[in-house]
Write a protein that binds this DNA or RNA. Structure first.
Lengths: 124, 124
DNA sequence: CGGATATTCAACCAAATGGTTGACCAATCA
DNA sequence: TGATTGGTCAACCATTTGGTTGAATATCCG
């Protein structure tokens, strides 16, 4: 027999912020933005530059990332700077590890993952 | 200056299966189902029982979880058994850890997390 | 001041999402 | 056989999502 309370605590009540975080991560454009911000803080226009969609669309994506707590935005002068806030991933990461019980993953693994997924952009 | 290739490898090309996994995790009902399956394999009807939605709705959620690879379904007789497939979380977990660079998370942390999030279901 | 730059707002649109209901199919049981 | 149980399918609906365009709002620069 299964503990049904598990179903309730997770599906009821206030909008779990895991909803927001996972939903934010479900879009490849937003994950790409996060990957870019991993290297440096960026202005909105610069974030938008490599993408083929409008600035307004990117602006919306940034709002979603901000609401999820995954980035913060600070306006200095007329430019708005975007900063990665990796702590927002902690709860989600903990949640996932609870299932996977993976061995601790290190940065090397992440780099390998990037290499595998990366199409040949070094020789354009 | 920022490496824009990072934006492209992530947003272009075939539908990244991180899309599917994160989208699957973004719904609280589906996370609840996964949590239930953490304890035991279950038949579809039993999965549906604690929820207030129709069986058909749950059936759809299970399809989504299956497509994401997060569960597998095997039909024995007239009942279809659902089994957690935690390996599907690995890629997503690696992706997230690349950002957070969290200290290794252990099961204790997960248990604490469950306790915190759990409303008082012990005294109904 | 006036023009350019940075960003958001508002209205709109197509497609995807999450749910419903009722019919349907398969397997079991009496 | 016939009724019941387990589960999906199909059609439908409301809402959300991800994008567009064009106008609006600041801010900086000469």
């Amino acid at each position: 027999m299964v503990d049904q309370s598990r179903a309730l605590w997770f599906s009821e009540g206030m909008p779990n912020d895991l909803d927001t975080v996972f939903a934010a991560l479900a879009d490849p454009t937003r994950r790409a933005i996060l990957a870019m911000l991993l290297e440096d803080d960026m202005a909105v226009t610069d974030v938008a530059e490599p993408f083929e969609m409008s600035l307004a669309a990117i602006s919306k994506h940034l709002v979603i990332l901000t609401k999820a707590g995954l980035i913060s935005q600070e306006k200095r002068g007329r430019v708005k700077w975007c900063k990665l806030e990796p702590d927002a991933l902690r709860a989600a990461s903990v949640w996932m590890q609870g299932f996977g019980q993976f061995e601790p993953v290190n940065l090397d693994a992440f780099e390998r993952f990037l290499e595998i997924e990366l199409p040949a952009t070094d020789d354009p």
